[in-house]
């Protein structure tokens, strides 16, 4: 996990994997949003959830908010004053706890490992 000591190649490799992940998420999110708009009934049950970020640098925060806004039904809305919480508007919130965990594990962890 120590990003400082990992080699340049490992970071490049992770960066490549991350960009693939990013593209995949963007494509998936676009189709999901498009599907929800085109079907006559709205399946969307939106909500705003808080995700905890423990001490990210400015650069990590920028990448994370960018990623969050561009991916499946999520939109970063606000950041708490002490930068410990990110408030996300999500289009499908059947279970806030599971979603929070998923975002913390999927996005925050990935971003922290690479940038």
């Amino acid at each position: 996990m120590s990003t400082q000591r990992s080699s340049v190649f490992l970071r490049l490799w992770r960066g490549l994997l991350f960009s693939l992940f990013y593209v995949k998420e963007v494509v998936a999110s676009s189709f999901l949003v498009a599907y929800d708009i085109l079907t006559p009934r709205l399946y969307s049950r939106p909500g705003i959830i808080a995700v905890s970020l423990c001490s990210l640098t400015d650069r990590q925060l920028l990448v994370l908010t960018n990623l969050v806004t561009m991916t499946p039904g999520t939109l970063s809305l606000d950041l708490s004053a002490d930068r410990s919480m990110l408030y996300i508007h999500h289009m499908h919130v059947p279970d806030p706890e599971a979603l929070r965990r998923q975002i913390e594990e999927d996005y925050v962890r990935r971003v922290r490992e690479i940038f």
Binding site: R45, P46, I48, A50, L77, D78, Y87, P94
Partner: peptide, 13 residues
């Protein structure tokens, strides 16, 4: 917000 909105954790803050 839409009335179907499920949770809002930002408002209290």
């Amino acid at each position: 917000l839409w009335e179907e909105t499920q949770v809002d954790e930002l408002r209290p803050r």
